[in-house]
Design a protein around this nucleic acid. Structure first.
Length: 420
RNA sequence: GGAGAGGUGUCCGAGCGGUUUAAGGUGGCGAUCUCGAAAGUCGCUGUAGGGGAGACUCUACCGAGGGUUCGAAUCCCUCCCUCUCCGCCA
């Protein structure tokens, strides 16, 4: 969440930045509540202070055998007043906190201003769209023909948008996961994490999924637990509520997890194949850094994700998300988009975001700097990469005229075969 | 799941209704002593939110949330977590 002090001191600046996201956003209400909240707190503090001193007097008087009835009655009345003010303060605190939790991060100054995803500038392009001497098939057709993804039975077992990988398909999916994890741990310096796949409400609030996006997640009925929509959630929250040493930073962590998303509101979108499903695999990279280094670390993290695509030989481009398109908690975001022949366009396969101190403030992740001062860390993350979409891109881009699919060189030691 | 024990500052640990302004120790920082170091001695040492130009000052925080009371770390209730034993289990 945003820093209330920053809001208080620079209301116009914050409003201007928020309106770059969406003209309807404003912190005016928060400022109003903040002023009243402080007034009430001052009053309550003063009364509490008085009560404390007077109560101590009663203790002394009783020891001396004096009568305290009148004084007790007086303080009882004071106590009622304190209670009244406390209730008011709690209410104002909660309202303010809720408003802050529902206010998105302010975009970085370098985030391009725009009205929709159409305004996302392309930063770079690697490779060029795959050309075929025959009419290429979509991955959903190829996968069925080869028997490597059983879409129908996936639906039977669960629901639409659930998939069943089998045989070489299951093996290829696992190979991709392992390739990514090995790359990030062995070449890019990340620590491998295998987190819980369910997280509680506090954890979900830390990274920004709650309270605003509850309907996007699967929730357990009898427990305060949600299926994670991304490894970002458990991994970023590993150090929630803790104070790290500056020597511990930066932290590089990578995790494979399945991701569960209800995809509410995307009915009719990407209905076929592996592109948009309720459960998919992803390898995520997460960094905790000092404020001074987060921009550099963001660039490096994005390059780590690009490396995945380059080693696989998949053509892609990098776009900078504009103010209308960046995620709720992010101040800056690059998307990597892979060339997908069936869509005849580039399709998102990684999202690399810098959150500044927005998540750290929500999750209360801090560090002690060289001068002993306690500050919030910066958090970053990016997909490295979405595994299902990588699978689809491999199937489509490396299909041959005879219907076979060539496995990229770097995956072969994990698959044990070079062709499907 | 059953029975018991317990959650206090960096850590250990006392406190069981009123000079607790959380004892004492430990760790850390500083000073002193020393050629230097150790030991000793003395001092400082949490987080958050208010107020103040500032030196400062007020409030809250003893797992979390309620309650009792003039007053709660301390008594009561609910929940969470940890440990021990038993049961069950991959």
């Amino acid at each position: 969440m945003l820093d209330i002090k920053l809001i208080r001191e620079n209301p116009d600046k914050i409003n201007e930045l928020l309106k770059r996201r969406n003209p309807e956003l404003s912190i005016d209400k928060i400022i109003e509540i903040d002023a009243e909240r402080r007034k009430v707190q001052t009053q309550a503090d003063e009364l509490r202070s008085k009560r404390k001193n007077e109560s101590q007097k009663i203790g002394m008087m009783k020891k001396n055998g004096e009568n305290t009835d009148a004084l007790q009655e007086e303080i009882r009345a004071l106590g009622d007043k304190v209670k009244e003010l406390e209730e008011k303060q709690v209410e104002l605190d909660n309202t303010q906190r809720d408003l802050l939790l529902r206010t998105p991060n302010i975009p970085d100054e370098t985030t391009p201003i725009g009205q929709s995803e159409n305004d996302n500038p392309t930063i770079k392009t690697w490779g060029s769209p795959t050309e075929f001497s025959f009419t290429p098939k979509a991955h959903w057709d190829l996968c069925e023909e080869k028997g490597i993804v059983d879409f129908e039975r996936g639906v039977k077992l669960s629901q639409s948008r659930f998939t069943l990988y089998r045989g070489k398909g299951a093996r290829l999916e696992r190979a991709i996961i392992q390739f990514f994890l090995d790359l990030h741990t062995q070449e890019h310096g990340y620590e491998e994490i295998l987190p819980p796949f369910m997280a509680n409400a506090a954890t979900m609030t830390g990274t920004g999924q709650l309270p605003k996006f509850a309907e996007d997640m699967y929730k357990c009925v009898d427990e305060d637990l949600y299926l994670i929509p991304t490894a970002e959630v458990p991994v970023t929250n590993i150090y929630s509520g803790e104070i790290l040493s500056e020597d511990d930073l930066p932290k590089y962590m990578t995790a494979y997890t399945p991701c569960f998303r209800r995809e509410a509101g995307s009915a009719g979108k990407d209905t076929r194949g592996l592109i948009r499903v309720h459960q998919f695999n992803k390898v995520e990279m997460v960094k905790l850094t000092t404020p001074e280094t987060s921009k550099d670390e963001h660039e490096k993290l994005t390059q780590n994700a690009e490396k995945c695509l380059e080693l696989l030989g998949l053509p892609y481009r990098r776009v900078a998300l504009c103010t209308a398109d960046i995620g709720f908690s992010a101040n800056k975001c690059f998307d990597l988009e892979v060339w997908l022949p069936s869509y005849n366009t580039y399709k998102e396969i990684s999202s690399c975001s810098n959150f500044g101190d927005y998540q750290a403030r929500r999750a209360n992740i801090r560090y002690r700097d060289k001068d002993g001062k306690i500050r919030f860390v910066h958090t970053l993350n990016g997909s490295g990469l979405a595994v299902g979409r990588t699978f689809a891109a491999i199937i489509e881009n490396f299909q041959q005229e005879d219907g076979s699919i060539i496995i990229p060189e770097v995956l072969r030691k994990y698959t044990g075969f070079d062709r499907i």
